[in-house]
C-alpha cells in the first residue's frame, strides 16, 4: 500500500507542491515529478555526488535524502543556474573553457558544489578546493581541469586576474 504526502517547496526560485510517495528519494522527486534531469543517478548510496543539489544553500546528495524532507526547503539544481535567455553561468562556461567535461555525468553535481564554494565568498587555496570538491567522483578522471575551472571562476569573482 502506497503512502503519499504533500510536499511544498521552492525549486530554482519557484514555489511548487506535489503529492509525493514517501518512499521516494529527493532524486526520484526532482527527476520524475519535476523533470530536472541534471540530477543524476550514479551510485545511489551517497558516494559519487552525481545527484548533488543545494538545499537551503548547503550541498546534499539527493539520493540519500527523503523527498518528504524537502517540505519547506529551498532547492537548487543545475537548471536554476541558467540565465533568462538560456545563458550559461560563469562556472558552467569555465567548465567548457577548461575542458572540465568529458562524458558530463559528474558535471552537474560538481557544479552545484562549486556554486556553494563560490557563493560562500571565501577565497580557498587549491588544497581547500580539493577538499570542498572531494565528495564527487569523475569516472573520466578530469579532476585537474575541474579544479582549474572552479579555481579560475572563484578568482575572477574576487577580481583576481587569471590567464
Amino acid at each position: 500500500m502506497s503512502q503519499y504526502k504533500l510536499v511544498r517547496c521552492n525549486i530554482n526560485g519557484k514555489d511548487v507542491e506535489r503529492m509525493v510517495d514517501v518512499r521516494a528519494s529527493l532524486t526520484d522527486m526532482l527527476r520524475n515529478d519535476y523533470r530536472l534531469t541534471s540530477v543524476k543517478k550514479g551510485c545511489e548510496v551517497g558516494e559519487c555526488g552525481a545527484c548533488n543539489v543545494l538545499i537551503d544553500g548547503e550541498a546534499f546528495n539527493s539520493c540519500i535524502y527523503l523527498a518528504v524532507w524537502a517540505d519547506g526547503k529551498h532547492i537548487r539544481t543545475l537548471e536554476g543556474l541558467m540565465g533568462p535567455n538560456g545563458e550559461l553561468s560563469d562556472i558552467q562556461q569555465a567548465f567548457i573553457d577548461e575542458t572540465a567535461i568529458q562524458c558530463g555525468f559528474c558535471t552537474p553535481g560538481f557544479i552545484m558544489s562549486a556554486v556553494e564554494v563560490l557563493e560562500s565568498g571565501e577565497l580557498y587555496s587549491r588544497e581547500e578546493l580539493r577538499k570542498r570538491l572531494s565528495g564527487h567522483l569523475c569516472r573520466c578522471t578530469g579532476y585537474e581541469n575541474i579544479l582549474n575551472a572552479v579555481e579560475k571562476t572563484m578568482k575572477r569573482r574576487h577580481g583576481i586576474p587569471v590567464d
Binding site: G46, G49, A59, F60
Partner: peptide, 9 residues
C-alpha cells in the same frame, strides 16, 4: 567524515 555532502547530512 566522508565528504562535504555527508558532513551536511
Amino acid at each position: 567524515v566522508g565528504s562535504p555532502q555527508i558532513r551536511n547530512i
